[in-house]
Write a protein that binds this DNA or RNA. Sequence first.
DNA 1: GGCAGATCGATGACATGTCAACGAAAGCAC
DNA 2: GTGCTTTCGTTGACATGTCATCGATCTGCC
Lengths: 165, 165
Amino acid sequence: MDATRWLDEREDHAWRGYRRMRRLLDLELARELTQDAGLSEPDYDVLSDLSETPQGRLRLSELADTMLWSRSRLSHHLNRMQQRGLVTREECADDARGSIVVLTPAGRRAIESAAPGHVAAVRRHLIDLLTPAEVDALGALTHRVVDHLVDPGLRAARPQPAAEG
Amino acid sequence: MDATRWLDEREDHAWRGYRRMRRLLDLELARELTQDAGLSEPDYDVLSDLSETPQGRLRLSELADTMLWSRSRLSHHLNRMQQRGLVTREECADDARGSIVVLTPAGRRAIESAAPGHVAAVRRHLIDLLTPAEVDALGALTHRVVDHLVDPGLRAARPQPAAEG
DNA sequence: GGCAGATCGATGACATGTCAACGAAAGCAC
DNA sequence: GTGCTTTCGTTGACATGTCATCGATCTGCC
């Protein structure tokens, strides 16, 4: 049992910063989204993923996997969205167990009117505060962490500081 | 009404990466924390902040502000932690409205036994996957975003790549 | 002192997320 | 086809977070 390697000052700074940003950024984006469009962030994400498909239709399990949600959570959330008329469910022809989530016209209007404001908020509170190099670093770093979480066997190594371009 | 500036490919990559990392990293850290120490992340944060004070005591509102929690949320959560014997409440001498949150011996044991494993998990799943430059970049970027959210008036500008000091 | 308004923390109602369990249907072995 | 196992999506119970509200107390002002 060797001694714990605590976080040094820089590591601690990064870790605390990440957690504070996560909390405050989420709060602010959710606040603006609710105020401007009457949608929660989960609502927005569901509608957004649906609207990116050609037909505005997705198998429930496929949508859940894309969003990294449990089927249970998605099912509950769809009930609420369905009651508000944003989505409907249809039976799946191939698989009688399945159900297909369908964007309603109202749902499409909702996401289309919400998107510009939301993207602007993401820019204003995050993206436009970063240098291009930081945007790239954030993209690289987050995807490396995600890949490692999905498959720790990959031993997702730190890229070598030098070399490579 | 000018056209929306959508996210370009790199910006979208960073934004999607951030959201996926946030979700997966939180899930994994919470999972390990529950399994190894019987604590949730909120539990851990409360205990951690308390244990960093000399006496293990903090005014409720002070703790709430530090954690960026609402007083309501903290009050609810303390009820649950109190029932499990991790904290207690004491009256505040200076201010009869106030209450002081106190770490119990059991609470101190809980955080002290949980901390090494949790820090190791943070290293394994995040910090140790980053280059030193990325750690610094993450620290700089997140704190800039946080400062801007706390006080947008600061116009927290992107640091100039060159020059300036 | 006495009043007006702010702050503190608690509470109840409600929204949301998690977890375990379930019935129905599909897949697979034989 | 018959059974065993897995997958799909739903459901109910419960844990957690948010919001509006409340009584109590403090603060500043007169």
